[in-house]
Computed example of a mutant assay.
Amino acid sequence: MFTGIIETLGEVTNLTTEGSNLHITITSNITSELKIDQSVAHNGVCLTIVATKNQEYTVTAIAETLEKTSLDTLKIGEKVNLERAMILGSRLDGHIVQGHVDQTGTCTSILEKDGSWVFSFEYDATLNNPTIEKGSITIDGTSLTVVNSSKNTFSVAIIPYTYENTRFGTYKVDSIVNLEFDVIGKYVSKLMANR
């Protein structure tokens, strides 16, 4: 379980394919605090640490994860949003995030607005993942509030801190991102569909 509050940015240092698996090696300033078998969210995708060495660690993404997320587009040198699992009893500063990406989306516009930014995204609505105005959305692991929600598009407003300390500063139009929709909204939507 995660909160969607990004702890730090890591950097991809190696990508190795083994069968249908992708081994991703990352350097970060929290590596010394990580251990094998620990879960860490990478751009919103919960992955298990399989090796650590000095300031680098490695995680493995299986075929299903690669099909449903944007991890297969990673490149060496690319920045990655990182968040360790939440500690039970701590404040929930973001919202409830499972680290289970529902689908990807595409950035359709970036508007600078007097010191902040509005990012708009489009996604495949046939997968029945709803956004709700003022509801929660997780983009590459970052917990955000939805604005301008419609059937297959939504926008989020980004403050300078988030822009500078997450991947938002690297996005361009057509950037592909991981989306995890609000867990409560997904359950309510599923229940209503089954009535």
Rank of each mutant, 00 (worst) to 15 (best):
T65D: 06
N194D: 12
V45R: 02
D114C: 05
S70D: 12
L71Y: 07
V101N: 05
I110T: 05
T108N: 02
A125R: 07
Y123P: 01
S189Q: 13
I110P: 04
I5Y: 03
E164T: 04
E11I: 14
N178W: 07
Y163F: 15
G10M: 03
E56L: 09
I49D: 05
Y187R: 07
Q38R: 06
T166F: 02
T58I: 10
A61I: 08
S109C: 06
R195P: 00
S20G: 11
D93P: 02
H100R: 02
V147P: 02
T126F: 07
P130K: 09
G185R: 03
L66T: 10
E18A: 13
T138N: 01
K35G: 15
V50R: 05
I6P: 09
G135W: 03
T13N: 05
H42C: 11
V59F: 07
K134C: 04
E18W: 08
G94H: 00
I76T: 15
S32A: 14
K75D: 11
E164C: 01
K172A: 10
Q38D: 13
E78T: 09
Q55I: 12
H42E: 02
N178F: 09
T13K: 14
K186G: 10
N14L: 13
N152Q: 08
D140I: 02
A125M: 10
V118M: 13
A193P: 06
I137V: 13
T27S: 14
S150Q: 13
K186T: 07
K75H: 13
T106G: 00
T69Y: 11
I96T: 00
T52K: 15
N148D: 12
F154C: 00
G169Y: 04
L92G: 03
L191S: 13
D93K: 05
T25F: 07
N194Q: 15
T138I: 04
T52R: 14
T31L: 09
F168Y: 10
P130L: 09
V80S: 00
Y171G: 03
G44C: 05
Q103L: 15
Y123E: 03
G77D: 04
V97R: 01
H95Y: 06
C46Q: 09
Y57W: 14
D182E: 09
T58V: 14
V97M: 11
F119C: 00
T170W: 00
M1D: 06
S32C: 09
L92H: 00
E122S: 15
